[in-house]
Design a protein around this nucleic acid. Structure first.
Lengths: 180, 180
DNA sequence: AGGTGCACTGCAACGCGTTGCATAGGTAGC
DNA sequence: GCTACCTATGCAACGCGTTGCAGTGCACCT
């Protein structure tokens, strides 16, 4: 998996400029593959050199010109190739786990506060995802094709955040009991 | 969060060589912060230069010499400092989500197979974690301090893998229905 | 009049993570 | 006897991700 392919997916759905792509990554697709505008500009250039995308310069008044990118036939072929290729399952990677594991080497009370903070952050994300679900997928049972796939991805985000929040609650509860 | 701190936690629990650390990262702590021996050797050197660890060379017969590392006072101070510092909540990052989102741009049947493969991988990890739980923490209710923290981290891994497997089942079910 | 924020592109530098390779003796299986 | 894997350390190179910075012009608030 590379950022290239996430961009190809997003650009195939809708053409757009680097800036617009960065905004999209801040919402939807970036919930599962975050990227900054720097990465996106750099990769778009590379993809252009490889012939996977084409751009048309669009002059705007009151705003800087923008380059709207579109996926070429070669880009579509590359996307199909990548989709058929096996992908390495992702690994967990969360510094909070390391902190918790080392809690007794510092102040466990501070680590407890930290877990509470993370819980709040993840609960916030969960609320955002649920909001999107209510707004964009009010009737999940009727979905097919692309809409179904998008909804399933969102479901993945919801499940991951739910389970993280539940874990935080378990940790908070256990740490409080241990500290008292 | 940096690899330095994960190593400090591991080395404080028990001194060890770079190679031994790499083995530990393959098990326990690496389930939440993976690292290869290359990273570990490189970072150990940096930590040594910074005075966070000291090593003693140990000659062995039939085997290469090894350097056993120990955390210095400065290293313990750095660990305490980092533990008290707030940590950015981790973000989800899984190429499978991108693939699912783009499934209709390729062959959705192949993506379904891919989800089944990932499910098997995560179910395997889950089984490993549950095995560790049964073996090392048969009576979770009695735990305190360091053991409690370790068990809670393991619980996090179990919850994450459980929820991922459940999500895969939801996706597999939905994709099958949509394809038939 | 000044500050902040948004839209839009981009460069430069650094560090983390990955991959391939090298060395070297010991053990185990075919 | 050959292959393969384990212990043990390390170099070199590449690419991805992050951070800081730069420039331009409009809109909005104070």
């Amino acid at each position: 998996m590379a950022l290239e392919h996430a961009i190809l997916v997003s650009l195939t759905e809708r053409a757009g400029s680097g800036y617009e792509l960065a905004r999209r990554f801040d919402r939807s697709i970036g919930y599962f593959w975050p990227a900054t505008h720097q990465q996106i500009y750099r990769v778009l250039r590379r993809m252009h050199d490889a012939g996977w995308v084409r751009h048309t310069e669009i002059a705007q008044d009151g705003r800087p010109d923008k380059k709207v990118y579109r996926v070429s036939a070669a880009g579509k072929a590359e996307l199909a190739r990548w989709l058929a290729e096996p992908e390495d399952p992702a690994v967990l990677r969360d510094g909070l786990g390391v902190k918790l594991r080392g809690a007794s080497l510092g102040d466990p009370g501070v680590v407890l506060t930290e877990v509470e903070r993370h819980r709040a952050e993840h609960a916030g994300r969960l609320a955002v995802y649920r909001g999107i679900q209510r707004r964009d997928f009010p009737e999940p049972a009727t979905l097919h094709g692309r809409d179904l796939h998008q909804h399933l991805v969102l479901r993945g985000g919801i499940r991951a955040e739910e389970s993280f929040v539940d874990w935080c609650d378990e940790v908070i509860d256990a740490l409080r009991k241990d500290l008292s």
